[in-house]
Design a protein around this nucleic acid. Structure first.
Lengths: 158, 158
DNA sequence: TCCGTTTGGTTGTGGTCTACAACTGTTGTG
DNA sequence: CACAACAGTTGTAGACCACAACCAAACGGA
C-alpha cells in the first residue's frame, strides 16, 4: 500500500484541474500566434521539427489521435503552407511530411509565446521546484499511459 | 530570471503530455462507471457533494465552462436522476441543485474506479513523491489560472 | 506470375463538448 | 412603474474525435 487515499485524491484533483486550465490555455495559445496556427498544430509540428520527415501514421501516434484525425489536420497544415509532403520513395502508399520555413517560423512563434506565458506563470518558482515538477509529471504521464491501456475492452459485447 | 528555458520547455511538454493522456482517461473513466455517468458528471457532481446545494452558475464556474454548457449537462443529470432541483426560495430566477442518492452512489462508484486506476498507476510511487506532486500541481494550476486571463484581449480589433 | 491479404491513407458519417447569441422570466432600482 | 441587470434555457455553429468504408500500393504464397 504505497499511497494514502488522501494524497491520491488530491493528486487526481490536481490533474483534473490542470486538465481544465490546460485545455483553455492551448486554444488561447493557438489563436494568439501570428501564422494562424490551428490548435493542433503544436502537437503535429513539434515531432516534425525534432525528428524530421516522417509519415502520417507516426505523427498520429505521437499526437495520440486516430490516423483519420491526423490526416485531416495535416491536410489543413499543408494547405496553409506549414508543411509539405513528398511520396515515400520506399512505399508508394505513404507520404513523408516535412516542415516548411513558414511552419518552422510559426512553431518558433508559438514557442516564444508559450515561453512568455510560462515564465510569467512561474515567476516566483524556484528552479528546483520547476525541474522537480517536470520530472514527476513526466513520470506520472508514463505510469498512467502504462496503467490505462488495460480497460480498452468490453466494447464488442452487444 | 527564475527558471531555465530548458526546464520550462520540459515542464510545458510534461503538461501537454498529461493533457493528452488525461483527456483519454477521463472519457474512459466515465463510461466504465455503472450508473452511466456522463463524462462531465464528475466535475459537476463533486462540488455538489462537497459544498452541498448550489446553483447552476456556481457549478459552471467551478467546472470552468459556460453557463449554457452547464445548463444542458445538468439537465441531463437531472433526467438521469443523479441530481434534483428546487426553486431558490430567495430568487425566483434561480434553482438550487442537489445530489440524489443515486447521484451520490454513482459518484462513489466513479471515485472507487479512479482510486483503483490511480493506485495501479502509482504502484511504485513513494508517498512523499505523490504528495509533493499533488502540491506542485495544484500550485502550478493556480499560477496558470492567475497568469493566463491577461491575454483575453485584442479581439475587438477588426 | 497471379491473386488474396495486409497496410497506409483518405473520406463519410455521427457523436461529444464547447461558446456565443437570442430569448424568457425575475429581481431590483431610480 | 418603467428599465436595467441578472439566472437560466434554447438555437446555432464550430472544433475535435473515432469508427467504418473505401482506394491503392505492397506483400506473400501457390
Amino acid at each position: 500500500m504505497p499511497i494514502t487515499r488522501e494524497t491520491c485524491e488530491r493528486l487526481t484533483a490536481g490533474v483534473a484541474r490542470i486538465l481544465r486550465t490546460g485545455r483553455l490555455l492551448s486554444v488561447r495559445a493557438a489563436d494568439a500566434v501570428n501564422g494562424d496556427l490551428p490548435s493542433y498544430g503544436w502537437s503535429l509540428l513539434v515531432p516534425l521539427e525534432t525528428d524530421g520527415e516522417q509519415r502520417c501514421s507516426a505523427l498520429a501516434a505521437r499526437a495520440g489521435v486516430d490516423v483519420s484525425v491526423a490526416s485531416r489536420q495535416l491536410a489543413v497544415l499543408e494547405r496553409s503552407g506549414h508543411i509539405e509532403r513528398r511520396p515515400d520513395p520506399r512505399d508508394g502508399r505513404a507520404s513523408l511530411l516535412h516542415l516548411t520555413g513558414a511552419g518552422a517560423a510559426a512553431l518558433a512563434d508559438a514557442r516564444a509565446l508559450r515561453s512568455d506565458w510560462a515564465t510569467a506563470a512561474l515567476a516566483d518558482w524556484s528552479e528546483d521546484d520547476a525541474r522537480l515538477l517536470g520530472e514527476l509529471l513526466d513520470r506520472l504521464a508514463g505510469d498512467l499511459d502504462r496503467a490505462a491501456p488495460a480497460p480498452a475492452l468490453s466494447r464488442v459485447a452487444s
